[in-house]
């Protein structure tokens, strides 16, 4: 009897690991969505008010914090504030966003894309600047949609493999 209970625990453990992997996948999609929204809102401000990037980041950060996203909101607010106090965009963005994405589940190329944002903020007119920032939003949205499409299938597969692996391991241990 105890052996069967042990097998159930092993199977439950591996299923739990599978669920964790699925949740991480969901969190990555949510983070991509947040970053896409962020770039979209920056692009909107660029074309509508032509406000400087420091002011945009500070205000956007405040709004995001109010809506409960303290991590990204706080990061943007800090970048905006330090920019206003004379810091450099490239250095600040790399430092703060790297820290924000340190524990994130984004892929390396997605992180690199986010970190390359300051390199595109040098267009002399709002129209082209908006297009450049929108390209970031578009890239994030594409990544998000691709991840979302694969999510259900990958989740099913993950759960199946984890559960089967757990049962197999349990049976081997019996």
């Amino acid at each position: 009897m105890l052996k069967w209970i042990g097998l159930c625990f092993v199977a439950a453990g591996t299923a739990g690991t599978g669920m964790r992997i699925c949740l991480d996948r969901k969190a990555r999609i949510a983070q991509l969505a947040r970053l896409g929204q962020m770039f979209g809102r920056i692009a909107g401000e660029v074309s509508y008010s032509r406000t400087g990037i420091s002011e945009i980041l500070e205000e956007l950060g405040e709004k995001m914090k109010r809506s409960g996203d303290f991590s990204l909101g706080g990061t943007l607010e800090a970048i905006g504030r330090e920019l206003r106090n004379g810091g450099g965009l490239t250095e600040l963005w790399r430092e703060k966003m790297s820290a924000y994405m340190e524990r994130s589940l984004l892929r390396r190329e997605e992180k690199e894309l986010v970190l390359s944002f300051p390199e595109t903020v040098d267009f002399p007119d709002a129209q082209r600047q908006r297009t450049a920032v929108e390209a970031f939003a578009g890239a994030m949205d594409r990544e998000k949609e691709a991840a979302r499409k694969k999510e259900a299938e990958e989740n099913r597969m993950t759960m199946a493999v984890c559960l089967a692996g757990g049962i197999l391991a349990g049976l081997l241990l019996l």
């Binding site: 400087g52 990037i53 420091s54 920019l83 004379g86 450099g88 300051p118 267009f123 082209r128």
Partner: peptide
């Protein structure tokens, strides 16, 4: 730097 890294804002 003077443009606040936002040349478009100074267009």
């Amino acid at each position: 730097h003077i443009c606040g890294y936002s040349l478009y804002a100074c267009e």
